[in-house]
């Protein structure tokens, strides 16, 4: 079993997602980047799950966890998109860097 490849893939995905979250101005793209991060974690979970259960038959806990994450991510994106929609309605823009009303 080549665990390393999965972990590398996940790491790359995570970094791309992180880059998107930190750098993109478009809120929708930020949300999409968050999805990337979550899915990189999902890959990790499934990979580790498979790796653990390789010796003695089936162990699906990693995959079940990934399913949970997907469900939660769906809900989170729902809330996130609703926020984005409202922000757009108010400001005619969804540029994240312009949202600094909470500046101290």
């Amino acid at each position: 079993m080549f665990l390393n490849q999965f972990l590398l893939l996940a790491a790359v995905l995570f970094c791309i997602g992180l880059y998107g979250v930190l750098v993109r101005r478009n809120a929708v793209l930020v949300l999409m980047s968050i999805e990337l991060i979550l899915n990189s974690v999902n890959i990790n979970l499934v990979a580790f799950g498979a790796w653990w259960s390789s010796g003695d038959g089936a162990n699906y806990s990693g995959q079940v966890f990934a399913l949970f994450v997907i469900a939660v991510a769906a809900a989170e994106v729902g809330v996130g998109l609703a926020l984005v929609l409202l922000i757009f309605r108010n400001r005619k823009s969804i540029a994240v860097d312009e949202l600094d009303a909470l500046k101290g």
Binding site: V21, L22, V30, D97, L99, D100, A101, L102, K103, G104
Partner: peptide
Amino acid sequence: LLRRIQTGKVQQYAFILF
């Protein structure tokens, strides 16, 4: 000093977090 950190920009916060 500390108010400089609080820019109101979510991405900066995220950056600091990471």
